[in-house]
Amino acid sequence: MSEFASGTLSAKNIHLSFGSNHVLRGIDLHVPQGTTASVIGPSGSGKSTLLRVMNRLIEPDQGDILLDGRSVLKDSPDELRRRIGMVFQQFNLFPHKTVEENVSLALRKLRKLSKEEARSEALEQLDLVGLRHKADSRPANLSGGQQQRVAIARALAMKPEVMFFDEATSALDPELVKGVLALMTDLAKGGMTMVVVTHEMGFSRNVSDAVTFMDAGVVVESGPPEQLFTEPRTDRLKGFLSDVL
């Protein structure tokens, strides 16, 4: 049973160009409720851009995005983003606010909770990521791993139906990666619908339900992790795996 009110997310035939640069060339991605999809591929393949299109930080030129089977392109993008949590490579915590304020800001301003309610919910979320004792510190006084866990708590506080992770561990020192991955694994096991852009092949292989390999703006191969990692069918995936493994 799922502990999250999560939803099914699909991207259909997504196209996006920046000028003459055709970044996404007809991407399809289907993430059933409660599953974790990882997206792997070389730098510049369009993985991070795909995430930003799916929560409409960037509007696609063509294609459709469906949440629970319904197109979200006509809704307000702000409303959509409240339903999708996002965690960034560079954490992007708000440095002028305390850890607790980082988590409670959206609760107060968007969900209109009172200051006290928002704080107690924020502390609860911080407890979940093991950082309640840092509630009144500034992000700058936290390690990278701690900052990223706060960023996860900030996203989770909005009770999103889907979580996006954009290379969430790429900027971390090696010894800090484990804690963040463990937290992501907990979320996945707890039934959160997740899309994880990652260079962590171990996570992709062991935790995700489906893997999508992207290169040069197209999905080259996708399927269950066992299949992609043990029997890659395309030369491009074989080449990529031999480079990163």
Binding site: M86, L93, K109
Partner: peptide, 15 residues
Amino acid sequence: VDKGQLEASRALGFG
């Protein structure tokens, strides 16, 4: 101010 700040805020659902 780093572009990621605006992006993170928009991603939370702020206009």
